[in-house]
């Protein structure tokens, strides 16, 4: 198993947000975590990326316990997060943002990876020397994903990649995530956009108030009457 989370608990100070989450991601899978605002999706991501120290449970990445690792160690191991809100480096050029993606990992093939990512996202090549802060929201999202790919991830966490994009771009973004996965990259996709996420994910977990309330193959979840009522408005 590439990622295995056991009874994970985490929060901020006295406030517990994650109340015992267990999940797995196998190699080559797209696994989705679905949930509304404020149920703990970003807390889960940031705990996996070691920005938040868990108060209980265990995180295993490719069999290694990374529960107490530092963020840089998690990155070195190949668990890379593309955060919500993109968090690109606004003053740095597109090129420099990409280069920093391989700050800790993937440095040997840096130039080849820049080339590859610019082929996947031709817009980034057009904006190569421009400051990232001047890009549109969609372009920044592409840059954030491209920067993440520069680290040659073994597991890529995408936190709400469709947030703030136009419907057309959302379509494009999901197609792209499917394409990256088809090349063999494992993806943990954390989303509110339930319908489109279930179309590309192999399996999904539904997060409510810090607990997984449903889990299973995407096709099964898409047919679940409860989920259809609460999340798809059907």
């Amino acid at each position: 198993m590439l990622l295995e989370v056991r009874d994970l608990e985490a929060g901020y100070g006295e406030v517990t947000v994650l109340r015992g989450l267990s999940m797995t991601v196998a190699s080559g899978e797209i696994v989705a975590v679905l949930g509304a605002n404020g149920v703990g999706k970003s807390t889960l991501n940031n705990t996996l990326s070691a920005l938040i120290r868990p108060t209980g449970g265990q995180i295993l990445f490719d069999g290694t316990d990374i529960t107490a690792a530092r963020p840089a160690q998690v990155v070195s191991a190949g668990l890379i997060q593309v955060p919500e809100g993109r968090r690109v480096f606004p003053d740095l050029s597109v090129r420099e943002n990409l280069l920093l993606g391989s700050y800790r990992r993937g440095r040997a093939r840096r130039d080849a990876n820049v080339e590859r990512i610019c082929t996947v996202f031709p817009r980034l090549r057009e904006r190569f020397g421009q400051a990232a802060g001047t890009l549109s929201g969609g372009e920044q999202q592409m840059l954030a994903i491209g920067r993440g790919l520069m680290a040659e991830p073994r597991l890529l966490i995408l936190d709400e990649p469709s947030l703030g994009l136009s419907p057309l771009l959302v379509e494009e973004m999901f197609a792209l995530i499917g394409a990256i996965n088809a090349e063999g990259l494992s993806i943990l996709l954390v989303e509110q956009n339930v319908a489109q996420t279930l179309e590309i994910a192999h399996r999904a977990y539904v997060l409510e108030q810090g607990r997984f309330v449903m889990a299973g193959p995407s096709a099964e979840l898409a047919d679940d009457p409860g989920l259809r009522r609460s999340y798809l408005g059907l």
């Binding site: 920005l51 840089a72 997060q81 968090r87 690109v88 700050y103």
Partner: peptide, 23 residues
């Protein structure tokens, strides 16, 4: 240099920098 880029990255976007493995 890489170090300089990391310094400028940290100056404006700490969280993003951490997620790229910058200490």
């Amino acid at each position: 240099t890489d170090l300089g880029r990391a310094i400028r990255a940290v100056a404006r976007e700490r969280q993003g920098a951490r997620l790229m493995g910058i200490d």
